[in-house]
Structure formats: C-alpha cells, structure tokens
Nucleic acid binder design. Structure first.
Length: 278
DNA sequence: ATGACCACAACATGTGGA
C-alpha cells in the first residue's frame, strides 16, 4: 500500500496536477489538507476517473481536509474526539469546530488527514488554539492506542511545526517568524510522539523540506521547512518499507507551496504489494 | 533554471497562509 499526504492549497485550483501525480506515483491513499472547498465543491470526477473515491470535509473556503482512496474508505470520521474549536474574537469552550481532521480505515489501517492550526503569532489567540489542538490530538491518539495497541495508525498531514533546527534553516523563512519553532510547539509535537507514534519518513529521508513560501525566491534558494509528516503507530511503522519527499512537485506552473510525502507499506503478511510475475 | 506570493469571495480589498 502506498500512502501519501499533501497540503494542496486548494484542490480546485490544481486538481489535474494532484491526480496526475497520484496516478504517476501509484498512490493508493492520498490525504489532502487545505482543500479550501466544501464537499459539494470538491472536484470528485477527476479523482473518480482515475479510480479514486473521495471523502471530503470542508465548511467554507478555509482549511478543509480529504482522503482519496482506490482501495476503499471505511468508518469515515470527521474531527477527532475532544478536538477544540475556534472563532476569531472568542475564546473558551464549545467554539465551532473547523474542518481540520478526517479519518478512515483502509485495508485495516486507520489513516487521518490532519491540518494543524497555524498559530499566526506567539501573542495571537490562534497560537493557544494550536497548542490546545495538539494536546487534544495527543489525548485522542493515546486513547486509540490504549484501546487497540496493535492498531496500524497513521497521523498524516501538515503539522505546522518544524521539530528540529534542521527543519528550518533560518527563522526568517517564516514571515512574522517565531511560530513553528517555538519551544511550546516543539514540546507539543514531542508529547504527541510520546503517545505512541513515530515519524516514519525521517529515518529514510533524513534531509529535505516539504514547504517553501511562495515569496522571496524561497524555493530556488531552498529556504524551506519540513512541517508535513507521517506519524505511525508501532504496528504501522513496522510495515514501512520506503518513503520519499516529492520536491519536484514544487516546480512548474501552479504548484502548491507544499510537496507530497509518500510512504510505502508492506501488506500485513509482510510482503510488498507488487503482483507476482511468473 | 527551481525565479521575485497565492487562493478565496467578490468584484475592492480583506483574510488567511507559515
């Protein structure tokens, strides 16, 4: 099974590019973030023509997440238990939920497409929201794995955190800076890992970014960040046989500012998925 | 070249992104 995650920065503005890449890379399951549309507006036909079914969660032009699969989507769930909401100018409990999480079961693997809040600035209410959202995700993850320790679970998406200094060469790469690398954000990410998931890409791809800002020649200068991840439970990580960051998808006409991250998984018998050739 | 922001709603400019 080949599972990918990609912050597409509007699925409608680059649907052909997204589907072409998925087909070319033989992707079975694609988790998307920032689809920037409602399920009714989602360009399903292009995915269906390529053999993918789509589960999308979007409320308006902001955020939005989706899963596309050509091997089925079961037990689709929008938002995770305890996920906090946000409304600008308000704080507290029971604020409206944003479209930042969708999960489904694919061939026994529980896959989540996650779009962690940006934070906007260290003094912004959105920053507190980001930290609370990550803590709620940690609690949900601990609960899932406590109930089912052998669950193959993948938390994929745009985490909006550069966990190590090597994941962002210079703080000026983020306009306004200071978010994405602050100690509380990095600690929240580390606590999420302590709930029982691990970055399955870094051991196989130790170098490289997944995002470059559109401005100021960030891509040709290679001034980017690594903020998109696939975090797997032990039962998932044990089956990972390959990983890649598709830097070329930042080139050419009309790219997203993020590139896809792909993980190859052995099937649950320990074999790869390639058909036998006699 | 991998090149100097982009997407959305709306139709001017504001919001959000990271």
């Amino acid at each position: 099974m080949r599972i990918a995650t990609w912050n597409v920065n509007s699925v409608r503005s680059r649907v052909a590019r997204i589907v072409d890449w998925a087909v070319r890379e033989d992707v079975d399951v694609l988790a998307m973030q920032e689809i920037k549309c409602t399920p009714e507006q989602f360009p399903r036909e292009a995915f269906e023509r390529a053999g993918y079914e789509v589960a999308a969660h979007g409320l308006n032009q902001w955020n939005g997440v989706a899963l596309a699969s050509r091997i089925g989507l079961g037990e689709v769930e929008t938002s995770f238990p305890g996920m906090p909401g946000f409304l600008k100018g308000h704080e507290g409990l029971d604020l409206p939920l944003e479209a930042r999480a969708i999960g489904a079961t694919v061939d026994g693997v529980r896959v989540w497409s996650l779009y962690v809040p940006n934070g906007r600035g260290l003094d912004d209410p959105h920053y507190r929201y980001k930290l609370d959202w990550l803590e709620a995700l940690r609690e949900a993850t601990a609960s899932w794995l406590s109930a089912e320790p052998e669950l193959p679970l993948a938390l994929t998406g745009d985490f909006n955190i550069a966990p190590t200094d090597a994941d962002m060469g210079d703080p000026s790469f983020v306009p306004g800076a200071s978010t994405h690398i602050s100690p509380p954000e990095r600690e929240a990410f580390a606590r999420l890992l302590q709930a029982g998931v691990a970055d399955v890409v870094r051991p196989l791809v130790p170098e490289g970014y997944t995002f470059w800002d559109y401005k100021q020649l960030r891509f040709p200068r290679n001034e980017g960040m690594r903020i998109d991840f696939v975090l797997g439970s032990p039962a998932f990580a044990d089956r990972v046989s390959g990983a890649s960051i598709h830097r070329d998808e930042r080139k050419g006409d009309g790219p997203s500012d993020h590139v896809p991250v792909l993980v190859e998984l052995l099937d649950d018998e320990g074999d790869d998925d390639r058909p036998m050739i006699f």
